[in-house]
């Protein structure tokens, strides 16, 4: 039953968002704190509970996989409804912020992979 998968997803999101609201309340901020992140972790763990796993294996997973696959189209729609006109006033900020984030993240790959930088440079020279 596909609806079981969709309902599982809905349960995770609602629970996560609710917990995020509670966390925000507990921390004294008027904000949802990590609700979507909590929902994602909840889904990972619930998908491994034997009774739920059984239903998922019987076809309920299609209800989750459909929304998984709809992620990019939804992000496309999300982009199309943004206030881009206003954002363009800060165009260079977007480019420089995104660019700097990528440069720093690239630089950290050899550091966290545990590979000495001189060794990787030596291999690219040939």
């Amino acid at each position: 039953m596909i609806i079981y998968g969709v309902a599982l997803l809905a349960f995770c999101l609602l629970t996560g968002v609710f917990m995020g609201e509670l966390l925000g309340l507990a921390l004294g901020v008027n904000a949802n704190v990590g609700g979507v992140g909590i929902a994602m972790l909840l889904l990972v763990f619930l998908a491994h509970v034997p009774a739920i796993k059984e239903k998922l294996n019987e076809g309920a997973d299609a209800g989750v996989l459909f929304w998984n696959a709809m992620y990019i189209p939804i992000v496309i729609a999300m982009a199309a409804r943004q206030n881009v006109v206003a954002a363009l006033e800060g165009g260079w900020l977007a480019v420089s912020a995104g660019g700097l984030a990528v440069i720093l993240s690239f630089a950290l790959v050899p550091v966290l992979s545990g590979r000495p930088a001189d060794r990787t440079e030596a291999t690219t020279d040939d």
């Binding site: 997803l9 809905a10 995770c12 999101l13 996560g16 968002v17 609700g35 979507v36 929902a39 994602m40 972790l41 889904l43 990972v44 763990f45 998908a47 491994h48 997973d61 989750v64 996989l65 459909f66 929304w67 998984n68 709809m70 992620y71 939804i74 992000v75 999300m78």
Partner: peptide, 14 residues
């Protein structure tokens, strides 16, 4: 949007 984001976590296994 949030619904689909949560669904992307599904591919991960323990």
């Amino acid at each position: 949007r949030d619904f689909a984001i949560v669904a992307t976590a599904f591919g991960v296994n323990l």
